[in-house]
């Protein structure tokens, strides 16, 4: 009963702040609303008895990525007046691209029959023990490969940063 109300609250919060990300005029407000969306999603994870996922979600998205976003936006200090208005064809292209993505998503989700999660309290998948066992047992190679991918991205970023310095 009580969890249902929390679910509705979190859903409304997630959707509202997701819309506000697009609607807000100031980039900083958009970033902060996006952070709020992430918190709402973390709340959904808790409702699904996946506390580990919820906390990692907060640490990685709200705590690291969004702080860097905020950092960049602040440093650039983007203002509403400084942004040049986009030409018409860019707008049309953007709408078409968005509509195509929407169509694809609808097509994908039409194929699924929506299952209700039995009882979130009995599923253990989001708890750290079970998740760790699955990651290191069933999906060891994909897990390790993705970590190598991240390492490559990091090395690439450092290299790009270095190059700029030399050219100066």
């Amino acid at each position: 009963m009580f969890t249902q109300y929390i679910f509705y609250f979190l859903t409304v919060m997630a959707l509202f702040s997701a819309v506000m990300v697009l609607v807000s005029k100031k980039p900083i407000h958009s970033v902060l609303f996006l952070t709020l969306t992430f918190f709402a999603i973390a709340g959904h994870y808790v409702l699904l008895n996946a506390q580990f996922l919820a906390v990692v979600h907060v640490i990685v998205y709200a705590g690291a990525i969004m702080v860097l976003f905020l950092f960049t936006v602040m440093l650039l200090n983007l203002n509403k007046d400084e942004r040049s208005p986009k030409p018409l064809w860019v707008k049309i292209m953007a709408i078409m691209a968005g509509a195509m993505l929407l169509l694809t998503l609808i097509g994908v989700f039409r194929g699924y029959d929506i299952k209700t999660v039995n009882d979130p309290l009995t599923t253990q998948i989001g708890l750290v023990k079970e998740l760790g066992r699955i990651l290191y047992h069933d999906y060891l190679i994909p897990f390790e490969l993705s970590s190598v991918l991240f390492l490559t991205a990091m090395v690439g970023a450092v290299l790009l940063g270095k190059k700029e310095q030399i050219n100066k």
Binding site: V58, A62, G63, L70
Partner: peptide, 25 residues
């Protein structure tokens, strides 16, 4: 007594910077 207490502390520490950033901006 949540089973991920340490990670909870990390989550709080990592969002602790928001107050300062928002205020400063």
């Amino acid at each position: 007594d949540i089973n991920i207490g340490i990670l909870y502390i990390f989550a709080i520490v990592s969002i602790g910077v928001y107050g300062i950033m928002i205020g400063g901006w």
